[in-house]
Amino acid sequence: MEAVFLQLLNGLDKGGAYALIALGLTLIFGTLGVVNFAHGATFMIGSFCAVTLQKLLTMSQKVRDESVTFFEAYKEVPYLEIWFGDTGRALIDWTVPLALLFSIPIMLAFGYIMERGLIQRFYKRTHAEQILVTFGLAIVLQELVKAYFGANPIPTPAPDIVSGSAHVGAWLGMSDAIVYPWWRLIYFLFAAILIGGVFAFLNMTTFGMVVRAGMADRETVGLIGIDIDKKFTIVFGIAAVVTGLAGVMYTPVLPPDYHIGMEFLVLSFVVVVVGGMGSLRGAVAAGFLLGILQSFASMTEVKSILPGIDQIIIYLVAVVILLVRPRGLMGREGVMED
């Protein structure tokens, strides 16, 4: 029972990451109909926003180390610490949360430029060509990041205050042995809030209403006299922000390297397809579902019956769904269905 509960928790934070990435992708893929293979790279750019901010905040100066008295020793002290003392140190400690704010304008601009500069020329081209050009873009972005940040993963720790583990078991009256890293708990909550925010934006604002109308029937919305292309550009920007934030928040879980996006890319497509093309709720549900399934599949009890199942469960689910119910769990009938 406790093992199951722990796996459920593990699944929730993984699922949160999947759901966020898939939400961003489905905004692009499911609504604009663009097969965006640069989506993984968007995630990567997001996490490198955190890395960049960390580099900026920890820019340092060589200062003489007073604690060493035998010879002249120097240590690197960040400017922030020199200027602001403890406040500066706290700022550096809180890099990742600060990077959330830092990344929003960057990701918005990134999405805007990408859509206006490249994607809009490909709305009318075939899916194969969309895949190819975005795949090329992903390679370019990756290589640029690699050129500036190197090929090694760069650790970007979470703030000290949340670096330990939460005694989740004790809270719920179960064994004290169930502990869970704080940051993963925060990741799950953050994902839930962000997903709620996107849904609220789409369901409660006039802008969101127009976008939803455009998803359902682009042509008619255009005929009414609404410049739907402009709205969709903004949707693209929002999708980039959601994905980027998912990337920023993921950095303490997994130190980012230039290749991080490619690993999530295939996964995110699988999640979107399982959830159903063009269905935001489907993408979120499928993200959590697959995350939880994956963590259950990696339990030793399951693995002893079906060796290797943890490695392929997600793809297996995708294959079955595509064959049995090609429109996915919650996809509308007739949307991008062959």
Partner: peptide, 11 residues
């Protein structure tokens, strides 16, 4: 179409 690509990718 795209579903074929994703299926082959999954396999």
């Amino acid at each position: 179409g795209i579903y074929f690509s994703i299926l082959t990718l999954a396999f």
